[in-house]
């Protein structure tokens, strides 16, 4: 039961240091993935100008990342209004919702089977292994975005409770699919 105090301090210090090293190692994990992907992508892009072809999997990945960038950009106005970061503006909200709905309809097609092996992708292989479940989530996203458009077309003078519920449902679809089908 007796325990030397300075010795104990040393052990505590050593354990903290060890844990710090472990956390750093964990922190490196995503960096390593993007490093690998980055190298490949740079090679592919460098080759494009010289007429070399990008492989179809990486091409599909590039396409879908672009799609999601545009989805995020077009949903942001509604998101900002929903979270109180921006004043509600009916015309902007409707435009934002309409574009999101159009883009949401493209999500399913942006995940062709051949893109499962794309380098540096954050898509979980479960997308293709549990395709029906994934397609259901993509359809929910499209349906809920369309429902948001309908709500705004009915009344976009103020931020109604209906608007908030419908917008939250769309955002919830994003989260639901990310939690399930996106690598951490």
């Amino acid at each position: 039961m007796k325990f030397n105090k300075s010795h104990g301090l040393l052990v505590t210090g050593a354990s903290l240091l060890l844990s710090a090293i472990i956390s750093l190692a964990v922190a490196q994990t995503p960096a390593r993935e993007s490093g690998m992907g980055g190298g490949m992508a740079a090679g592919a892009e460098g080759g494009m100008g010289a007429g070399a072809q990008q492989n179809p999997a990486d091409q599909a990945l590039k396409y879908r990342q672009a799609l999601f960038t545009v989805i995020a950009g077009n949903f942001t106005p509604v998101g900002n209004m929903l979270q109180g970061r921006a004043e509600f503006n009916g015309a902007t909200a409707l435009k934002s919702a309409e574009r999101t709905a159009q883009l949401a309809a493209m999500v399913g097609d942006a995940f062709p089977e051949l893109s499962k092996t794309a380098t540096g992708t954050k898509s979980s292989p479960d997308i293709w292994d549990k395709r029906a479940e994934f397609d259901k989530m993509a359809k929910d996203f499209a349906d809920h975005s369309a429902a948001l458009v309908a709500v705004l077309k009915k009344d976009n003078k103020t931020a109604t409770a209906e608007f908030k519920t419908a917008a939250a449902a769309v955002a919830g679809d994003c989260k639901g699919c990310h939690d399930k089908f996106r690598l951490k």
Partner: peptide, 9 residues
Amino acid sequence: PAPEPVSFL
């Protein structure tokens, strides 16, 4: 600082 996601619309 508050986050300000840019809206392009």
